[in-house]
Computed example of a mutant assay.
Amino acid sequence: MDASLVEEVFPPQVRARMEQTAEVWPAGVLEDFDSPDAVDALRTAEVLVTGWGCPPLDAAVLGRAPRLRAVLHAAGTVKTFLSPGVFERGIAVSSAAEANAVPVAEFTLAAIVLGAKRALPLARLYGRRRTQRTAADLARPAWMGAHGLTVGLVGASRTGRRVAELLRTLDVEVLFYDPYTAEADIQALGARQVDLDTLVATSDVVSVHAPATAETRHLIDAHRLELMRPGTLVVNTARGSLVDTEALTAHLVSGRLDAVLDVTDPEPLPPDHPLWDLPNVWLTPHLAGALGNESARLGALVVDELERFAAGEPLRHPVLWPDWDRTA
Rank of each mutant, 00 (worst) to 15 (best):
E8F: 10
V9Y: 05
F10C: 09
Q13R: 09
V14L: 10
A16Q: 04
R17S: 10
A27F: 09
G28Q: 05
L30Y: 10
F33E: 08
V39P: 00
V39M: 08
D40Q: 14
A41K: 13
R43A: 15
E46N: 09
E46F: 09
L48P: 05
T50Y: 12
C54Q: 14
P55Y: 12
D58V: 12
G63A: 09
R67V: 00
T80N: 12
T80H: 03
P84R: 15
S94A: 15
A99R: 12
A105E: 11
F107Y: 15
I112C: 15
L114P: 02
R118M: 08
P121K: 12
L122V: 11
L122N: 12
A123L: 15
L125R: 15
R128P: 05
R133I: 15
R140N: 07
R140G: 01
M144G: 10
L149V: 05
G155Q: 01
T159Q: 07
R161G: 02
V163G: 08
P179W: 02
Y180T: 01
E183R: 15
A188G: 13
A188E: 11
L189I: 00
A191K: 06
L199E: 00
V208Q: 00
H209N: 07
T213M: 03
R217D: 10
I220G: 05
T232R: 11
L233N: 01
V235M: 02
T237Y: 01
R239K: 09
S241I: 13
A250N: 00
S254M: 01
V260C: 01
V260I: 06
P266I: 05
P268E: 06
H273V: 01
W282R: 14
A288Y: 00
A296V: 03
G299R: 04
L301T: 00
V302D: 04
D304T: 11
R308S: 01
A311N: 08
G312W: 08
G312D: 12
L320S: 07
W324S: 00
W324E: 03
D325V: 11
T327E: 05
